[in-house]
Structure formats: structure tokens, C-alpha cells
Design a protein around this nucleic acid. Structure first.
Lengths: 208, 208
DNA sequence: ACCGTTTGATTGAATAGCCAATCATTGATT
DNA sequence: AATCAATGATTGGCTATTCAATCAAACGGT
């Protein structure tokens, strides 16, 4: 019974945060959304920050589940027999679907990015989110880079940071402007990445 | 006299917003930072939002000036005689410098990104920031794409959105984690972009 | 089976403080 | 005098957090 109401509170927090954002959600709002007494949110979470951290972690769960359903182990290594290049391509497709299906999560996450800039507790939660997902991109990049004819100058970590960054920079544009064509931007990023991966070599071109 | 104090308020707003973020800055804080009476901020700005919008615009100014000092006209076309590829490379270098020299601006901007997700007025100001800069990336991309042997499948707009997104996704990682190596990530992005641009053949420019 | 006690869950009101916005007032300049 | 700039106290409303009081269920002794 206790765990149930705790989860009800966290879920209500997710809903209100997605709908109204960090500024405009009070503890009372969250309790009301959950259909509970105002004081109860503080019974389960000492501070508002603690509840928000729990909400972030809760909101991320469904996305991870989608990945795992697609046969991707988020924290473990990639399947040995898979073609890394195909994996990379699929990753970009997955990114497009993610944005479409879980825009609420990203609304919450980008809101929290902003909060985290000046709030250590939220920053820690948000960085966990970043690290996990960027490392996953890095694992795909690792496989792809290993198959390249010439090793790129950039490290795998740097490539992963660039690709993760590009996807989230694209997400940001979409969230701020619903008319933005995120699919086209992700396709462009995918095309650029694939050209990079299959290019004969870097730094061997004529100077103008 | 009036314009001077108005600017003093905006500058104070920038400083406090960078230091403490949107949540933790009140109108009173801003007035105190400016060394003025609490009520004066509302004399010049009807609402807090209006002041924040002015602060965003004010904070962006020095960056634009740097671009213009580098011989780049932000809103007009690129110089005819310039090598687009060299321009692109220089753009990535400029991005690295920008982040180093104006991290305060980006702290403010990313804070406002978060606020803008649920606040139409701030969203409008933030989108102006995005549009201007993304269009500038697009103008460089336009020149580079025109010189490619084979036209890419992606549109120039999509490429610009991807590159702008990657830079700001990288900025975000740096702001949330000072230990993050943003230079390496931008170098990686630059390498990927250049490989994409030069992939089929040499970068022979074709004039219209 | 019965009953008092304990424990934890839940309630809703109270506390203490902060904030944006207002406004009557004062000061300065023309 | 009249207009604009500046002050700082006030207002009304909101907030996170606390807390005493209620409720329900489990437990233990008989």
C-alpha cells in the first residue's frame, strides 16, 4: 500500500512537470494530481528536489524498456554477431521514434537540464541520464570505428559526445518549435555520420 | 539618464541570472545587484518576463560582435571570394572559442531554454536566438554543399539544424559537467563534417 | 475470539517566508 | 509648476515545510 501511493505521487509529479514545468508545479499541485492530501508528498519525499529526482528516474524507465525490447542491452556490450554499421543506422531510426513517442520525457528532461545548471542535486540526476545514454552511443561507435579502414583522429568518446549532443540539440529544437522537422535533421546527421565512417580517410584532401 | 539606468538593470539581470539562475533570481535581487531601489525594475519593465527577454538579447550582443570582428556578417551573405570549406572549419574553431569565452551566456541561454518550454514569451526570445544562429550555420552549409561533387540527400536546412544541434548539445554537456572535453567533441564533429563534405571527390567549387 | 496497544499512513490546517506587482511619496530637471 | 525618475513600504498571493490529529491495520496477550 505504501509503495503504491509513493509511485502514485511520482507518476503525478511526472504528469504535472511535463504539463506545467518546474516553475509552475508545487508540491500541492502534485498531491492534488495524485488525489492525495497536500502533506503526503512530504511524508514520502523529504524535499521537493528528492521528488523531482525520483520523477526523472521514473520518466526514463519506459525508454530503456523500449531499447531492451529492441534487443539492445543498455549497459552490457553489443551482440558479437551484429553489423556495427547497421546498428548505427538503427540507432538513428530509434532516436526518431523516441522523440515521437516520448516527447513528454524530453520535455521533462530539458526542463531539468535548465534546473540542473544551478542545482547540484538535479544536476547529478541529469548527469546520470546523460552518462548512461552517451555511453551507449559510445559502445555503438566503438564497433563502428573498429571497422573503419583508417582510424579517425577523434577518440570514440569524443565521437559519442558529438553524436549524443547532435541528437539532443535536435530534440531541443523540436521541443521549442513543434513545426521543426526533427526527422530531416536526424537523417542529415545519419547521412553525415555514415559518410564519415565509410570515407577512405581523413585529412587527405587537396587544399583550396 | 533614463537609458543608462535601464541598461544597468539589464546588465544586473544578466549577472544575477548567470550566477543564480532563473528560479533563484527575484526582481529585488536584480535591483539590489544594480544598486537601485526594489521598485525600479518594474518601472522600466512591466513584468519579470519582459526584463528576462531584454536580458537574453543583451547577453547575446557580445557574441555577435565577436563574429563581426572576425569579418563575418551575421545576417548578410558570406563573402563571395571565401573558400566555403575553410569557412566551415573556422566556424568550428569559433564555436570552441565562443564556449570558452562566453560560457556565462550559454548558462543563461540553456536556463532560458528550460523556461521557454513552458513560457511562450521566453520561448519567442529563445527561438529568435536559435533562428539567427542556425540560419548563419545554414549559410555556411549552403556554400559548402554547393561545392560538393554529389549533392547530399539531406537539405541544407536539415544539415544546419544537425550541426547547430550538435554544437549546442556539446555546450550542454560542458555546462553540466565542467570536466567534459568540449573541444574534443567539437573536433570530432568537425572531422565528421569534413569527411562528409569531401567524401566522393575533391571539393571543387562550382559557381552558379 | 476479544481488546488494548503500537505502528505507520493519511489528513488538512498552520507556519514562516518569499515573490511580483502596486503605489503613494520624494527628488530632480526642465 | 509639471514632468519624469526613483524610492521603499505595502499588498495579496503563493510556496515548501511542519505538525498535531485522525485513521486503519497488525500484533500480542488473554
Amino acid at each position: 500500500m505504501a509503495d503504491q501511493t509513493k509511485e502514485r505521487i511520482v507518476e503525478a509529479a511526472c504528469r504535472t512537470l511535463v504539463k506545467h514545468g518546474y516553475h509552475q508545479t508545487s508540491m500541492k499541485d502534485i498531491a492534488a494530481e495524485a488525489g492525495l492530501a497536500p502533506g503526503l508528498a512530504h511524508y514520502y519525499f523529504e524535499t521537493k528536489e528528492d521528488l523531482l529526482v525520483a520523477a526523472i528516474e521514473h520518466a526514463c524507465r519506459p525508454v530503456v524498456e523500449v531499447w531492451e525490447q529492441a534487443g539492445i542491452n543498455l549497459t552490457g556490450p553489443l551482440p558479437e554477431d551484429a553489423d556495427p554499421l547497421a546498428f548505427g543506422r538503427a540507432g538513428f531510426e530509434l532516436a526518431k521514434l523516441e522523440l515521437k513517442n516520448y516527447s513528454g520525457l524530453f520535455l521533462l528532461i530539458f526542463d531539468m537540464f535548465g534546473v540542473g545548471l544551478h542545482n547540484p542535486k538535479i544536476a547529478a540526476a541529469v548527469q546520470a541520464f546523460i552518462s548512461e545514454r552517451r555511453a551507449f552511443v559510445g559502445r555503438i561507435a566503438q564497433g563502428v570505428v573498429a571497422g573503419m579502414r583508417e582510424r579517425p583522429a577523434a577518440s570514440v568518446e569524443a565521437i559519442a559526445a558529438a553524436i549524443w549532443g547532435s541528437l539532443h540539440g535536435i530534440y531541443l529544437q523540436k521541443l521549442l518549435d513543434p513545426g521543426f522537422d526533427a526527422d530531416a535533421a536526424i537523417d542529415a546527421m545519419s547521412e553525415m555520420t555514415m559518410a564519415f565512417v565509410t570515407s577512405p580517410g581523413t585529412g587527405t584532401r587537396m587544399e583550396a
